[in-house]
């Protein structure tokens, strides 16, 4: 069908265009609100700035479709194929994208607020600057989490997102907003979280080994039993966070702010804590073999029963600290 015929019939009130062939057609700026294009072939179509709100695009072929600036709010895109599609600056608010193939698609600065992304494949997609607030990535009971392997989530807005158990290994989340996000048991090994906002987030049992968290804002986060081995936490703000039983061996934490942080029973062996602020931190029973505290601030820190015998305390400030033997440092 040619685009003119489609627009004419749509203007005349027809909305059902199931399975039609619209391969590579030009529908730039077309107003097709509420249209049914279920199973249609729109491969390579130009849909830039089109209005497709509430459109039925289930199982549609949208491979390489140009959807820059398209309005797809509340559209049904379940099981649609959006592989390599361009959705730059598109609006997909409340869209249903369950099980859609969005691999290698460009979603730069797209609006995905409240979108349903359960079971979608977003691997290799560019989600830089995308807003994903309220987006649903997973179902609580079934293992039906979105696939984000190799996705670019630089500066993406994931505030409050539920990414429990998600595989985010090596994903670029630098500068992303993960405030209040749930990342329990998530695999973030080797991920880039430099400068990310993680305040009040839940990272219990998460794997952050080798992750880059330099300069991240992590105030009041829950990191119990998290694996932070070899992670880069330089300049991180971890004030008031809970890290009980975390594994932090060999982490780089110079100049980090760990004031009032609870590090009970944490493995901090070989950690670089030079010039870090650990004032009033709780390090009860922490394992500090060969940890480097040179120039660190440990005022009023609690080091009761901590293994401190091979730690480097050159230039560290210990006034008021409770030492491993229970005495208070002058």
């Amino acid at each position: 069908m040619n685009p003119n015929e489609l627009l004419k019939r749509y203007a005349a009130g027809e909305t059902q265009f199931v399975g039609i062939n619209l391969r590579a057609v030009n529908l730039f700026n077309a107003d097709l609100i509420g249209i049914t294009l279920k199973g249609a072939d729109l491969n390579g179509a130009n849909l830039i700035f089109s209005y497709l709100s509430r459109a039925d695009l289930r199982k549609a072929n949208l491979i390489r479709a140009k959807l820059d600036g398209a309005i797809l709010n509340q559209a049904n895109l379940t099981a649609a194929n959006l592989h390599n599609a361009d959705l730059h600056g598109a609006s997909l608010k409340g869209a249903d994208l369950r099980s859609a193939d969005i691999t290698l698609a460009n979603l730069l600065d797209a609006n995905l607020m409240d979108a349903d992304l359960r079971g979608t494949n977003l691997s290799g997609a560019n989600l830089t600057g995308a807003c994903l607030r309220g987006a649903n990535f997973r179902e609580e009971k079934r293992i039906y989490t979105a696939n984000l392997i190799g996705a670019n989530l630089h500066k993406a807005d994931l505030r409050g997102a539920n990414l429990t158990g998600a595989n985010l290994a090596k994903v670029d989340l630098s500068g992303a907003n993960l405030t209040e996000a749930t990342l329990r048991e998530a695999d973030l090994s080797g991920a880039n979280l430099a400068g990310a906002k993680l305040g009040n987030s839940y990272l219990n049992d998460a794997n952050l080994s080798g992750a880059n968290l330099a300069g991240a804002y992590m105030r009041n986060t829950k990191l119990e039993r998290a694996n932070l081995t070899d992670a880069d936490l330089t300049n991180v703000d971890l004030r008031d966070s809970l890290l009980t039983d975390a594994k932090m061996s060999k982490a780089k934490m110079s100049r980090a702010n760990l004031s009032r942080t609870r590090l009970i029973k944490v493995d901090l062996s070989r950690v670089d804590l030079r010039e870090a602020n650990l004032s009033e931190a709780e390090l009860i029973e922490a394992y500090l073999a060969r940890a480097d505290f040179s120039g660190a601030n440990l005022r009023k820190a609690n080091l009761a029963r901590a293994e401190l015998s091979s730690a480097n305390l050159m230039g560290a400030e210990l006034a008021g600290a409770t030492m491993p033997d229970g005495t208070t440092h002058e």
Binding site: F49, G89, A194, G215, Y217
Partner: peptide, 29 residues
């Protein structure tokens, strides 16, 4: 270096909040 957000002396707005406000009411592109 990624946006640090909370301690920039001259930037007086939250980049995420501003973006959300715009996306809520118009086409991002």
């Amino acid at each position: 270096k990624p946006n640090l957000g909370w301690d920039e002396p001259l930037i007086s707005y939250d980049t995420f909040e501003l973006r959300v406000e715009i996306m809520k009411y118009t086409n991002p592109l």
